[in-house]
Simulated assay, not measured.
Amino acid sequence: MSPSPAFQLTRTLPEDATGAALRADVRHGLTRSPKTLPPKWFYDARGSELFDEITTLPEYYPTRAEREILVARAGEIAAATGARTLVELGSGSSDKTRHLLDAFGELTTYVPVDVSESALRGAARTLLDAHPALDIHALVADFTGALALPATPGPRLVAFLGGTIGNLLPEERTAFLTSVRGLLSPGDFFLLGTDLVKDEETLVAAYDDAAGVTAAFDKNVLAVVNRELGADFDPAAFEHVARWDAEREWIEMRLRATTAQSVKIPALDLAVDFAAGEELRTEISAKFRQDGVRSELRAAGLELAKWWTDGADRFALSLSSVPSP
Rank of each mutant, 00 (worst) to 15 (best):
F42G: 01
T31I: 10
P235H: 12
E228C: 03
S285R: 07
L169P: 00
F217M: 07
L302I: 12
P132D: 06
A275H: 11
T202G: 05
L107H: 02
G154N: 10
L120W: 04
I265Y: 06
L161I: 11
G19R: 13
A260P: 00
G311H: 12
F42N: 02
S93D: 13
F274Y: 14
L177I: 11
A133N: 09
A205L: 12
E172K: 10
F217P: 01
V224P: 01
D232M: 09
A305N: 04
V221G: 01
G182S: 09
T178G: 14
R227C: 03
L229A: 09
P186I: 13
T126P: 00
Y110D: 02
G162T: 04
F176D: 04
T63W: 02
R64K: 14
A6Y: 06
A45W: 03
Y110H: 00
L30Q: 04
A206G: 08
P150D: 07
L169R: 13
V111L: 04
T55Q: 09
Y60V: 03
A103G: 08
E279N: 07
F288E: 04
A211S: 13
A17Q: 02
D218N: 15
L255S: 05
A223C: 10
I165T: 05
S91V: 03
E49Q: 15
Y207T: 06
E228D: 14
D102V: 11
T259Y: 06
L107A: 02
P58V: 14
W244H: 12
P150H: 07
G292I: 03
F288Y: 15
G166R: 07
G162F: 00
W41A: 01
A206Q: 06
R181S: 08
V225S: 06
A65M: 10
S118A: 15
D218F: 03
E239H: 10
L184N: 02
G193Y: 05
E201M: 06
G277P: 04
I284E: 06
G182K: 11
D135V: 06
S179I: 06
A20L: 13
A216G: 02
G301P: 01
L147I: 11
L157T: 07
A74D: 03
I251K: 03
A148M: 07
S4D: 14
K35F: 10
Q261G: 01
L255A: 04
I69V: 15
T258P: 01
I136D: 00
E200A: 15
E76Q: 15
Y61L: 10
R281I: 12
L169C: 00
V213W: 06
R73K: 15
L317F: 12
M1N: 08
L157S: 00
A119T: 02
A286Q: 07
T126H: 10
F315E: 05
E200G: 00
A79M: 09
D102P: 01
T174K: 12
S4V: 09
V241C: 08
F190P: 01
V158T: 10
D310K: 11
F7A: 02
P3R: 14
S295T: 15
A276G: 11
I54N: 04
E303C: 03
V197R: 13
T56C: 07
D142R: 03
R294Y: 00
A78K: 05
V140I: 15
S185I: 05
T18D: 11
A148I: 12
K287R: 13
R289K: 13
W244R: 11
S33I: 08
